[in-house]
Design a protein around this nucleic acid. Sequence first.
DNA 1: GGAAAACTGAAGCAGTTACTTAACTATTGA
DNA 2: TCAATAGTTAAGTAACTGCTTCAGTTTTCC
Lengths: 111, 111
Amino acid sequence: MLHDPAQLDLMFQALADPARRQMVDRLSRGPASVSQLAEPLAMSLSAVVQHLNLLEASGLVRTQKVGRVRTCQIEPKALRAAEHWINERRLSWERRLDRLGDFLAETKDET
Amino acid sequence: MLHDPAQLDLMFQALADPARRQMVDRLSRGPASVSQLAEPLAMSLSAVVQHLNLLEASGLVRTQKVGRVRTCQIEPKALRAAEHWINERRLSWERRLDRLGDFLAETKDET
DNA sequence: GGAAAACTGAAGCAGTTACTTAACTATTGA
DNA sequence: TCAATAGTTAAGTAACTGCTTCAGTTTTCC
């Protein structure tokens, strides 16, 4: 479910915007309401809600409304999925370099 | 240099597109020419070059031209920077949860 | 009950993005 | 030399994004 390419797409797309990354950054320090998320951002509350909806659709953030306040928090599992995608590609590349290094070392021995 | 917010912005933006992620994925298995990168993608070579230029500007991919062939390879340091940004936020959240857990366990002892 | 607080949703708009096609510029190899 | 290969660049366009404003809806609290 979390490695579903469509979900991954939404996550990376969500992380591509600086305002949304700032919101994730804020939430990494603890839950916050929509207004609290909006406070440091130079845009209307409405714009923040639109960003938040994207973050929620991507799975990166979970929200729940109690009374008139929507409280938001990070979903670490989703962050881990994005992290994992990058990590796998990087490791794949680095393992390839290692094998190449071994090969070169071996062929050098054979002189 | 790699933790420069502008560079991070370019990286996440580059990773937001499925075609570009597919290119990164291909490159994680080894270097490739522009045509080789284009081969599995349902778009013109010109479009691929445009994607590649973005990937290069973001620092995720390095290319060098020999003769008429441009060979592309992954820049693991850049991947690591993106990975690191996500990882820091996730850990920050998870450490917060741990502290909260400890606190709740302690106050429970005091009954 | 009624004002204030905390959102929410729709419409509109300017700027950006992801393509396309078409016209190029090297390189290579027969 | 000259055709094919590999890539590049520019111009145009359709769709998508990131806002804005404005007009709601719920809750809360006096």
